[in-house]
């Protein structure tokens, strides 16, 4: 049980570090790092939601960025209409734009979940390689859809001019925004943790290992897997809504499959089938990108082979290396 203790203390100190980070940064004067770490938290959130699929239920979705993009576009489109003072649509009822974070962020979650429901219900009819390719293809479909959507900037995307407003918070202030991201991430991890160990979680973890057995037990695995797919999509949508606020800009690039691939890389780097690992993975990936990019614009030529080596030799990821314990048994 000492490995549990070690893991808990690592998670606790990591969490504490994230909580006091803004103070440390303002002491050191590198204010830039606040927004970098906000980005890390947001990508961490997206990566955790992806890990629910990859690590806990064995569904290899290669189109997870689509839901990040949907979430981001929901925030951006509502913002756009609010600033143009033009309703989104007038039939069957009038829907006005909005900059209210308490409205648009939940909407980002909801609408991403809805897309995940429709796409997931089709994708989950398939298995294995088919599933991988189809999730990818649907994400690309949304990508091309937004590229051709001239009304919202097409290929060039949309700018936001400011962040959403939440009563009692000033999201324009990077420190406030940082804590919003941290809070969202922690809430999502907490929810995910309950989920993974609940009866529902037991079923989906079982599906990842042996779906045929699940069916022999009398469980229609399809609806459970679909529910998890929707929950993961919702988490990604929240990340997208935050990301739109962080950069104050959205473009179809957010849905591009390379972003889906990078989210996968973060999960793998951090530790598959763990809830804190993906956050660590996101931090490492973005920090490496940031720092390598300072020395060479061709950082990917190093990142690529490094990734291959990690896959072949270090399957448990960084979280597994530092925290011990078994893969998938947090």
């Amino acid at each position: 049980m000492t490995s549990t203790l070690r893991k808990n203390s690592i998670v606790a100190s990591g969490g504490l570090l994230l909580v006091i980070l803004p103070i440390l940064v303002s002491w050191s004067g590198h204010d830039y790092y606040i927004s970098l770490f906000s980005r890390i938290l947001i990508y961490g959130l997206a990566a955790v939601s992806l890990d629910l699929l990859l690590g806990f239920s064995g569904m290899i979705s290669l189109g997870h960025a689509a839901y990040v993009g949907i979430g981001a576009y929901v925030v951006a489109i509502f913002f756009h209409h609010a600033s143009e003072m033009e309703p989104l649509f007038t039939w069957p009822f009038v829907l006005e734009g909005s900059e209210n974070g308490l409205l648009v962020l939940p909407l980002a979650v909801l609408i991403s979940a809805l897309f995940a429901l429709v796409i997931g219900s089709l994708c989950l009819r398939t298995r294995g390689m088919h599933f991988i390719m189809i999730t990818l293809a649907f994400a690309q479909m949304l990508y091309y859809f937004f590229v051709s959507l001239e009304k919202y900037g097409g290929d060039d995307g949309l700018s936001l001019y400011s962040r959403s407003s939440i009563p009692g918070m000033d999201l324009g202030n990077d420190i406030h925004f940082y804590y919003l991201c941290l809070g969202s991430l922690l809430v999502f991890i907490f929810v995910a943790r309950r989920l993974v160990y609940s009866r529902f979680g037991l079923i989906v973890r079982g599906c990842s290992n042996n779906e045929r057995r699940i069916r022999a037990l009398g469980i229609n695995s399809y609806s459970y897997r679909l529910a998890l797919f929707v929950i993961a999509g919702a988490g990604a949508g929240l990340a997208g809504g935050l990301l739109a606020n962080q950069t104050e800009y959205v473009s179809p690039g957010l849905m591009h499959w390379t972003l889906s691939g990078e989210l996968m890389v973060m999960v793998l780097l951090g530790g598959l089938g763990t809830l804190f690992g993906p956050v660590l993975g996101a931090a490492v990936f973005l920090l490496v990108e940031e720092n390598l990019a300072m020395y060479t614009e061709h950082w990917m030529v190093y990142m690529g082979p490094f990734l291959v080596l990690v896959v072949i030799f270090a399957k448990r990821g960084l979280f597994g290396l530092v925290a011990g314990g078994e893969n998938g048994n947090e």
């Binding site: 290899i60 991988i132 691939g261 990142m303 690529g304 896959v311 072949i312």
Partner: peptide, 29 residues
């Protein structure tokens, strides 16, 4: 690379070949 991945899960294959894409794209640049 790939020879080492035949017996592995699809996820490993996806990630490793994604790494290869990064490498080749950057190499051509």
């Amino acid at each position: 690379v790939l020879r080492r991945l035949y017996e592995r899960e699809h996820l490993d294959q996806v990630l490793a070949t994604f790494g290869l894409i990064m490498f080749f794209n950057e190499l051509t640049r």
